[in-house]
Amino acid sequence: MTELAQNIVDGLGRGSIYALLALGIAVIFGVMHLLNFAHGELITITGYVAYAAFLRGASWFVIAPLVLGVAVVASMGIEQVAFRWVRGAPDFTLVLTSFGVHFVVEAAFLMYVSASVKNFNRPGWIADTVDAGGLSFEIFDLVVIGVTLVTLVLTSLLLQRTMFGLALRASAEDFDAARLMGVRSDRVIRGAFALSGALAGIAAIFWLMRAGQTTPGAGITPMLKGVLAALVGGLGSLRGAVIGGFALGLAEVLLRARLPDAIAGLTDGVVFLLIALLFIFRPGGFVTVSHAERV
């Protein structure tokens, strides 16, 4: 029982980061049907920014806002350089373009920085725990969950209460119709990348705090988790992406804790198997966005 509660908090902490990444991926998928496999590059880029700032003696109070800002700028920059040229292209083209961005960023850091791992200090409190009712929780998990919830509430307000949010939701529903109603596509897409970058930036702060290092390929794992969470949640559904993120985090932690020892090493394999089964029997993911085909 105690173990279960701890696992759940652990899973929610992990899932929070996935949810932020997945939400950013879903926002972009909504406006341009792009499954952004380059989303993880925001973590790679900010990782090196954190490393550079750390070398200059910056503390996490400086690094965190810096990471956030760089993530937003980088996200919008990638859109300007790469994705704006393939708007409306076939899905194959979009997927390949995002992989192209991934390769270029990875190789650039490989060539201009180094292939080796760059370390920086984690915050001092990262491993601290707090005891409550016989349970011991990592403060880090609680902070992550708290910040994520606040972010999600703010994002939700932004989407529900502002003109930009309305335009973005309308575009996600039917991009062409939204344009015909006077929504400015260019601005919405740039806004979506900014929002997506901001969400990735917050995720990056926590990801980097925990990792304490970066490499040219550091973005792959978070990218995959985010993409999977967005897919599991039903791509294009913002709520689904958040649910998918938490579900993926919980599934990973609970499976790792519960699987028999013989196959514990295969936890990730089991997670992927479950995802495959989910999509075989529920092709739309958890939250099915019904776009009834009109015939």
């Binding site: 790469a82 040229w85 393939v86 292209a89 083209t93 390949l96 373009t97 992989f99 192209g100 961005v101 991934h102 390769f103 270029v104 960023v105 990875e106 190789a107 650039a108 490989l110 060539m111």
Partner: peptide, 16 residues
């Protein structure tokens, strides 16, 4: 690194 950069740029360029 360079062949990787080529691969990435090829993806971007040819796709665009």
């Amino acid at each position: 690194g360079l062949p990787t950069v080529f691969l990435g740029l090829a993806m971007l360029g040819f796709m665009i």
